[in-house]
Amino acid sequence: MPRISVKVDGVTYDDDVEPRLLLVHYLRDWLGKVGTPIGCDTTNCGACTVLMDGSSVKSCSVLAVQADGSEVTTIEGLAADGQMHPMQKSFHEEHALQCGYCTPGMILAATDLLRDNPNPSDDEIRDGLEGNLCRCTGYQNIVRAVRRAAAEMTESAAATDPKEARV
């Protein structure tokens, strides 16, 4: 069995895995990271979205062996120093979830979107999240939450970087 070394949410794990093991099953069943749910068999729903080397991927369509040598961030690794990530906080404050099943994937896809485009329009937010399906909310509050997080993250970046504050 191939041996892999993967850094997940800041901790490095070394394991012997079967080639057919999906990354999402590795995260859930081997590492106990059940914050990453599975919603489909067809790579459509986006519930399993994680960041792999900083980019959003659907972890149900990546093999664990393919993650060898890379860094994975799940919803469980997003908070820092006991503080929720601004995107998590905005989802909470804007009531951007009901059952919560889509939320981990939605939040990770949204952080990936802001990395590319720190100040997206509502249409760009909807486009950026098109790979994440929510069966509960109707998306309105999700878009609102992403907008709010974008504003807060730009503001706090400006506060820490005086050069940014002038533009």
């Binding site: 790579t43 986006g46 979205t49 980019s55 959003s56 991927v57 659907k58 369509s61 990546v62 896809a109 990936d112 979107l113 950026g128 098109e130 790979g131 994440n132």
Partner: peptide, 9 residues
């Protein structure tokens, strides 16, 4: 084509 996560891979 598809969505951002699918386009990443």
């Amino acid at each position: 084509v598809a969505d951002p996560a699918v386009r990443h891979r």
